[in-house]
Simulated scan of single mutants.
Amino acid sequence: MVLVARPKSAVSLCPCCGCQTGRVHSHYVRRLTDLPWQGQVVEIRLHARRFRCANPQCPRRIFTERLPATVRPKARRTTRPGESQLVALRSAVSLARACRANWLCRSAVTPCSE
């Protein structure tokens, strides 16, 4: 499944100096993977923009718009797979702790025959 997305904002903030600008330099497409939907692989084609910084003293003349709630800079996955992996990891750790505690209790009562 392929989803096409475009940011709604007409302006962006320079990550270097914080200056707001609406001067678009160019466009490009970012291909991102997201969580599966009903067993299907999901690809998001994000039409991103590069902006010109309006501050003449800024060392970064051209920058790509940031979408921190969706994707990190230079990432190929949305932030959602990372969040779901973190939840799964926390569940696995708590399960491992519970199993280890249960194993320790059983091994204290019934010593190994090795």
Rank of each mutant, 00 (worst) to 15 (best):
1 M>R: 02
1 M>Q: 02
3 L>G: 01
3 L>E: 09
3 L>N: 05
5 A>Y: 03
6 R>F: 04
8 K>Q: 10
9 S>I: 06
9 S>Y: 05
9 S>V: 10
10 A>I: 07
10 A>W: 02
10 A>C: 05
12 S>M: 07
13 L>M: 10
13 L>H: 15
14 C>D: 06
14 C>K: 11
14 C>Q: 06
15 P>F: 07
15 P>Q: 12
16 C>F: 08
17 C>R: 09
17 C>H: 07
18 G>D: 10
18 G>T: 13
19 C>I: 06
21 T>C: 14
22 G>P: 09
23 R>N: 14
23 R>P: 00
24 V>D: 02
24 V>G: 04
25 H>M: 03
26 S>V: 09
30 R>L: 14
31 R>C: 05
33 T>W: 08
33 T>A: 07
34 D>N: 11
35 L>R: 07
36 P>V: 04
37 W>K: 03
38 Q>E: 13
39 G>T: 05
39 G>W: 07
40 Q>E: 15
41 V>F: 03
45 R>Q: 10
47 H>T: 08
48 A>V: 12
48 A>Q: 13
48 A>T: 14
49 R>N: 02
51 F>W: 12
51 F>H: 09
52 R>E: 15
53 C>P: 13
53 C>H: 12
53 C>F: 09
54 A>E: 15
59 P>K: 08
60 R>P: 00
61 R>K: 11
61 R>C: 07
62 I>D: 06
62 I>M: 08
63 F>P: 11
63 F>E: 12
63 F>Q: 13
64 T>R: 04
65 E>A: 15
66 R>T: 13
66 R>Y: 01
67 L>F: 09
68 P>F: 01
68 P>Y: 09
68 P>A: 11
69 A>W: 15
70 T>Y: 14
70 T>D: 01
71 V>N: 04
73 P>E: 13
73 P>D: 13
73 P>H: 06
73 P>M: 06
73 P>C: 05
74 K>F: 04
74 K>T: 03
76 R>N: 08
76 R>K: 14
76 R>L: 10
76 R>I: 06
77 R>L: 08
77 R>A: 07
78 T>I: 04
78 T>S: 11
81 P>W: 02
83 E>G: 00
83 E>L: 10
83 E>I: 08
84 S>N: 00
84 S>P: 00
84 S>Q: 11
85 Q>A: 01
85 Q>E: 01
86 L>R: 10
86 L>H: 08
88 A>F: 00
90 R>G: 03
91 S>P: 00
92 A>Y: 01
93 V>N: 01
94 S>P: 00
95 L>H: 06
96 A>K: 05
96 A>V: 01
97 R>T: 03
97 R>N: 05
98 A>F: 01
98 A>T: 13
99 C>A: 09
100 R>A: 14
100 R>Y: 02
100 R>W: 09
103 W>Q: 06
106 R>Y: 03
107 S>Y: 03
110 T>M: 08
111 P>W: 10
111 P>V: 12
112 C>E: 07
112 C>I: 11
113 S>I: 11
114 E>L: 03
114 E>Y: 10
114 E>R: 07
